[in-house]
Computed example of a mutant assay.
Amino acid sequence: MKKIAFFDTKPYDRRYFEAQLDGREFEISFFETRLSRKTADLVKGFDGVCAFVNDTIDDKVIEILKRENIGVVAMRCAGYNNVDLKAAYKSVHVLRVPAYSPYAVAEHAMALILTLNRRTHKSYLRTRESNFALAGLEGFDLNRKTAGVIGTGKIGRVMISILKGFGMNILAYDPYPDQDFAGREGFSYVDPGTLYSRSDILSLHCPLTRETHHLINEEALEAMKPGVMIINTSRGGLIDTKALVEGLKGGKIGYAGLDVYEEEGDYFFEDLSGEIISDDILARLLTFPNVLITAHQGFFTREALANIAETSLENFRAYFNGGPLENEVCYRCDRPECRKETAGRCF
C-alpha cells in the first residue's frame, strides 16, 4: 500500500478524499501544515505528496523529496506557479487537476460582479437592522455593456457563456485565440489595449506565469475606462496590488472583486478574526466600500471538491501503476520531440 502525505489540508479535504478511497490502495496522512523547507522532512517514509496552492515546492523542497525517494507531487488544483519546474524536471513528476469545475470558478466570478454592482451584501446588512432605505445601492444594467475576458481556457469559456446570458457584448484576449470558438459564441478577440479601453467589466481567467505576472499594472489601468470593474478569480499575482490601490483611491477603478490576492498565503483559508492584519495593502483594500474580497473560494463547490479528489487519486494511480501521466504539467523542456506525447511521461 502506497503512503501519501497530504499538506495544507482542511476537514473538507479529508471528507472528500476518504469518500473515494476503498482503504486498500493508499494510506493517506493529512497534515494541516503547509509544505515548505521547514516542514518538508515530514515526507520521510512516504511514497508521494499531495499539495495545494499555498504550499511551497521550491528547489530545496525538491531536493528533500528526491532524497526521500519521492517521485511524484500531485497538486490538487489547476495552478502550479508555486512549483519550481526546473528543479522538478527529470526528478519529480508534477501532476495537477486541470478541470475540476470551470463552472464553479466562473459562477463565483459572476457572483462577485452581481454583488458589487447591486450591492446585495450591503443591502442584506441594512435590512437585518430594519434599514430599508435604497440610497447608495444604485447599480447598472449589465445588458449591452461590454465585458472583457482575459484567457479563454475552460473557465474563460464558461464565463463568456454566462456573460452572454446577461446580454453583454464580449471581447476577449488570449495569446492562443480560438477563432472557431469565437465565431460560434459571437465574440471578438482583440489586443489587450483595445480590451482595456472598451471594457466596462474585466474578468481574469489566465494562469500566473512570468509573462502574466502583474498583467494588470499601472500602465494597463491607465488604458482602462474610468469606473471599470475588475474581477480576479485566477491568481493574485496577475494584478499589481499597489497599482490597484492607487486606481481605487483615484477613482479610476469603480469596483474590484478579488477571490485571490498576491500575498494570500499568510491569510487565506485560515480564521484570523481575532488577530490584527499586518499586511498594510490587504488591510487598505478591506477599507474600500467598492471592493469585495473572498478567500479563494471560487473552487469551493461539492462538484469541484469531488472532482479534485477523484482526479488527484487517479493521478497517483497512473504514476504508481507505470501508466501515462495525462495530467503531468509541461516543464518547458524545449526538446524537439515531446516525450509525453510519445511515451506518456515527460521523463
Rank of each mutant, 00 (worst) to 15 (best):
N117P: 04
N117T: 12
R118H: 11
R118S: 03
R118Y: 12
R119E: 12
R119V: 01
T120H: 09
T120A: 02
T120Y: 08
T120W: 05
H121R: 11
H121Q: 13
K122I: 09
K122Q: 08
S123R: 13
S123E: 08
S123G: 15
Y124E: 11
Y124W: 13
Y124C: 05
L125H: 07
L125F: 10
L125A: 14
R126Y: 00
R126K: 15
R126I: 00
R126T: 00
R126G: 00
T127V: 15
R128I: 01
E129K: 08
S130N: 14
S130G: 03
N131L: 08
N131I: 01
N131Y: 03
F132C: 07
F132G: 03
F132I: 13
F132A: 08
A133L: 05
L134D: 08
A135C: 10
G136C: 12
L137P: 00
L137H: 07
L137K: 04
L137W: 02
L137V: 04
E138M: 14
E138R: 15
E138T: 15
E138G: 15
G139K: 02
G139F: 07
G139R: 02
G139V: 10
F140G: 08
F140T: 15
D141L: 14
D141H: 13
D141F: 08
L142Q: 06
L142H: 01
N143G: 09
N143C: 13
R144W: 07
R144T: 05
R144V: 07
R144A: 10
K145E: 11
K145I: 12
T146D: 09
T146R: 04
T146K: 02
A147E: 10
A147H: 05
A147Y: 11
A147T: 06
A147W: 10
G148S: 06
G148E: 11
V149F: 09
V149D: 01
V149P: 00
I150G: 03
I150Y: 00
I150R: 03
G151H: 09
G151Q: 06
G151I: 01
G151R: 07
T152S: 05
T152C: 15
G153K: 01
G153E: 05
G153M: 11
K154G: 14
K154M: 14
K154R: 15
I155Y: 05
R157K: 14
R157N: 14
V158L: 11
M159H: 06
M159N: 02
I160V: 07
I160D: 00
I160M: 02
